[in-house]
Write a protein that binds this DNA or RNA. Structure first.
Lengths: 122, 122
DNA sequence: TAAGTATATGCGCAACTTCGCATATACTAA
DNA sequence: TTAGTATATGCGAAGTTGCGCATATACTTA
């Protein structure tokens, strides 16, 4: 649904496009899938075992990322190999990991503060 | 809903947490808001003018990002100044911009190919 | 050919999101 | 205090997403 050209001025459709990519990443299962692809391609089936998913459910999540061209496929016999289309996406995920770790560390510290406060005055 | 500690082993709740951040970024309006914050803080109201939004609608989008701690606020008189909490988020957005531009360039090239093909055989 | 494996798709329900409208809260200035 | 400005919240309708189940398609091997 990537309407360029025939909608509003560029910036808006660009933002729409960006939002769609973020949307595609906005699910724990899809993040897990991409993390598995960090070191190269894998077959569709291997995610079922690695992540313990329903086959149909997995297939839908893969379809979301195919639609946004985040992953690409290669068919060999009756298997389909998935890989991340652009290494830049892996860089982004790595940077995100750094961000998450920072935030989680902060949040945990805050939580400990709260717990201490609760222990003092429960 | 950031449940650490009392859910599954770390990796899953971490992914949940990541997904929530992506979710928060997965809307064109929120991306627009963050882009405005690239060079420093702004009042809530200024987004209404800059982006042409309903005040209530803006407020809800800001609430989403406050909840995920992507933005933080500072109150001065009857105005609320918003800013991005962690500069790392801005780096991520910049990297994303690079990614998007690459992909858009690719997509456009592909579309031109398709258009050429259609012109040849409509 | 038939049976088996790998993957994708269609459907329906429950849960969530987005938005506009109305209203509430908080601060300022007269 | 009252009127005005800035921002936030509650509610309901319309749309979207995620999931499991059933089914379909495609390839392989006997």
């Amino acid at each position: 649904m990537r309407n360029f050209a025939y909608t509003k001025p560029m910036p808006d459709s660009l933002r729409q496009f960006k939002a769609e990519i973020f949307q595609a990443l906005a699910h724990p299962t899809r993040i897990a899938i991409l993390e598995q692809l960090k070191d190269g391609e894998l077959t569709a089936g291997s995610f079922v075992e690695r992540l313990g998913l329903e086959q149909a459910n997995l297939s839908q999540h893969l379809a979301v990322m195919r639609a946004r061209q985040i992953v690409v496929t290669r068919k060999v016999g009756n298997q389909v190999f998935y890989s991340v289309r652009d290494p830049l996406m892996l860089e982004i995920l790595a940077l995100m990991r750094r961000y998450f770790h920072k935030q989680v560390a902060d949040s945990m510290a805050t939580m400990e503060q709260l717990e201490k406060a609760e222990r003092r005055r429960p």
